[in-house]
Nucleic acid binder design. Structure first.
Lengths: 181, 181
DNA sequence: GGCGTCATGTAATACGTTACATGATTAC
DNA sequence: GTAATCATGTAACGTATTACATGACGCC
């Protein structure tokens, strides 16, 4: 593999239209961020690298004295994006979940403390679900469905996690009958 | 924050009993790996750092000429673990999901290619769920419930993701106009 | 004039993986 | 004896975050 996954985020965003690094970052923050984040420290150097490889082409817009450098895909860039999108290489899928980690070790706590932590984790996911719901999507007929479905996925994902916490809370609340007994 | 999250994995594993770095790694691989992984390159240097900070104590076992260096928690280490377990600092929760990323950009593909990718992602999660189910847990009465529940969580999590893919496949499959399938 | 936003970029640092080097013990 | 497993550790590399430095433009 030559390109990092994050460079495909950039290529993909440029496939949707000509953009500056700043705009790419803003778009990532309201779309792919919840399953693939990217920071300026990655985006700007990566844009330079992609340009050197001939996958994107940048042009400084001087029409009114400003200096935003907008990039667009080259033919080679389109090919690279397409190859990645259709490849069947093993997918990079990774979760880092401090709440689950704490829960794993939480038998060292009192039952109340253990429940407190579960509630905190649940609230975190409820907040994240609310944040995603606040992103009002521009869903028009005829528009490609994937971005909207991805947003729905994000919401369902956070709700699943919040729901799991809620069920675990129930199971660990004293006075409840244990499952399977 | 002084300690990295990964050092709490180590402290937590040592809370469960005296262990060598090798054993910690093996334990992580069948338990926390799916929401917090760790490699030798992290574990051994981190153990050394934790010992310098007085949170763990290592002793070389020379009873029969071997050299496994087993570590255990010190009182300070127990305190550090407990403080982390009960703290209400924002949780580090992060997902990197290449399948979701591809799906987000997949409107650039033909419907068949798009479905192919969804199926690949689904199969990945189905495989992961199967792997987790293969981990036979030692669930005895009186044993702490969290590790077992965490395993159940892992399975439910992978199944949720596989299920979401299946539903997306259904939604993107053109209505049964064709015959002969 | 000052604030917010647009805009680009770098440096320091942290985090993490992989591959490598080394060697003992155990089971066949 | 030889293969698997136990066991420790480092070096090189890659990936990513954070903070910082810089400055223009538009609006109030």
């Amino acid at each position: 593999m030559e390109l990092s996954k994050t460079s495909y985020v950039i290529l993909g965003m440029l496939k949707l239209g000509r953009r500056t690094g700043y705009e790419i970052k803003a778009l990532v923050d309201v779309s792919t961020r919840f399953f693939w984040a990217a920071s300026y420290g990655q985006i700007y150097p990566e844009l330079a690298r992609l340009e050197k490889q001939g996958l994107v082409k940048g042009e400084v817009d001087r029409t009114n004295g400003r200096r935003p450098k907008a990039y667009e895909l080259t033919a080679a860039g389109e090919r690279a994006l397409r190859d990645w999108l259709t490849s069947d290489d093993p997918l990079h899928i990774e979760l880092r979940h401090e709440g689950a980690l704490k829960f794993f070790f939480s038998d060292a706590l009192t039952p109340e403390e253990q429940l407190d932590q579960l509630r905190r984790t649940r609230r975190t996911h409820e907040d994240l679900a609310a944040q995603l719901r606040a992103i009002e999507p521009e869903s028009e007929a005829g528009k490609p469905p994937a971005p909207l479905m991805t947003l729905e996925f994000g919401i369902a994902y956070q709700e699943f996690l919040a729901g799991w916490c809620a069920e675990a809370e129930r199971r660990l609340t004293p006075g409840q009958v244990k499952k399977g007994s």
